[in-house]
């Protein structure tokens, strides 16, 4: 193949970048639509956008982990339950065992690591279908949450002042202020969870792009056999992917808890769906090997935009975001399948 030809080929838009483009355009269209319809209610404020980030900080972490697992061609539907377990551990640990906030956070992260190790071992070394493993994990984590407590717990200043302080800490941005009714300029702000989530996003982006581990995730997802022939340890890579997913999920759980400051058995139900949908909408292929976390971020933002549009409307039933996300997921899955079909045909 001539070099000139190769350059030309790189410039062509293939199906995968097209998917990502569609996602980004969709996000801007949705957001612009929201601004047009609910502009009067304050949708155009920068804070609305930041609120999407604040309320979805946990989801960003979880979706990053999900992307890593999906790159290997697997899936992890235990994340929502694991987030619930994390929140319950945090709330119960600080409320009933009177542990300090950093210790509880550490415990939560360790729980995530162990959870990921077990799941990763089952998937990587015992060759069980990821879906079955993580479904068992999902029910296990949800059940364990109920074992700890079936009550609705909330984290207040009395439970743990440190954690409460973290949760209510805000970083005012130096720009984009809006005057309120009294004429005082209110600066837009972000919370600690957003900073953690964005840090996670950047780290995972760099890991996926520049480290050996990141590249081997793509290789395993692209073709397990070729990866094995290239000398990659497929089993170990899969194990690491699941450990990473559960670990990020625990970080996400802490972010989620910082945002909600509460814990209950039914918390974060359907979060796995949101995470998978975000990754898929962001261009991660379900078959593995293609995708990155930037797309996932846009997937999360689309999710958040839908939720806040429903919230701004105020009249729509609470199940609409679920239905719309599922519909979007369906649309993108079908698109992926069509692209795969076209690619096959070209060959």
């Amino acid at each position: 193949m001539k070099p000139a030809n190769a350059v030309k080929k790189r410039k062509q838009i293939n199906g995968n970048t097209l998917l990502l483009l569609i996602t980004i355009v969709l996000f801007f269209v949705l957001y612009a639509g929201g601004c047009l319809v609910y502009g009067g209610k304050g949708f155009t404020n920068l804070q609305t956008f930041l609120n999407i980030l604040i309320s979805n900080a946990g989801l960003i972490c979880v979706a990053c982990g999900m992307t890593c697992v999906m790159l290997t061609g697997g899936i992890d539907i235990s994340v929502g339950s694991l987030v619930a377990l994390d929140c319950m551990l945090l709330a119960y640990g600080m409320g009933e065992w009177h542990m300090s906030a950093p210790v509880m956070c550490l415990i939560v992260l360790v729980v995530g690591l162990i959870f990921g190790l077990v799941q990763g071992y089952c998937v990587g070394y015992l060759e069980i279908q990821p879906f079955i493993v993580s479904m068992a994990g999902m029910f296990f984590a949800r059940g364990m949450t109920a074992v700890i407590s079936t009550a609705q717990l909330s984290i207040t200043k009395e439970t743990n002042a440190a954690f409460y302080g973290w949760a209510n800490w805000r970083l005012n941005l130096p720009f984009g202020g809006v005057p309120n009714r009294k004429g005082v300029l209110i600066m837009p702000y972000i919370r600690v969870g957003v900073i953690i989530a964005l840090l996670v996003l950047v780290v995972i982006f760099l890991v996926l792009r520049y480290t050996k581990f990141g590249r081997s995730l793509y290789a395993v997802g692209g073709s397990e056999q070729s990866a094995a022939m290239m000398g990659l340890n497929v089993k170990k890579t899969k194990l690491k992917a699941y450990v990473l997913s559960s670990f990020l999920c625990s970080i996400g759980g802490i972010c989620y808890c910082l945002n909600t400051q509460a814990a209950s058995v039914s918390q974060a139900t359907g979060m796995e769906m949101d995470a998978i949908a975000s990754a898929v909408i962001g261009g991660t292929l379900l078959t593995g090997g293609v995708g990155n976390v930037i797309g996932t971020l846009f997937g999360v933002l689309i999710n958040g935009t839908i939720a806040s549009i429903v919230q701004f409307n105020g009249k729509l039933a609470s199940s609409w975001p679920n239905i719309l996300t599922a519909a979007l997921l369906c649309f993108f899955i079908v698109l992926q399948s069509v692209f795969a079909f076209l690619k096959e045909k070209k060959k």
Binding site: A317, S319, L329, I333, V334
Partner: peptide
């Protein structure tokens, strides 16, 4: 989705796993 679009069964059914209950809730007005 599974047979004609060759989508992994569990992912294909994931859509309705989330949506069907939500639609049910919608029909019943919660």
């Amino acid at each position: 989705l599974v047979a004609y679009l060759n989508i992994q069964p569990m992912v294909a059914t994931l859509i309705l796993w989330s949506a069907a209950r939500a639609i049910g809730l919608l029909l019943c007005n919660n």
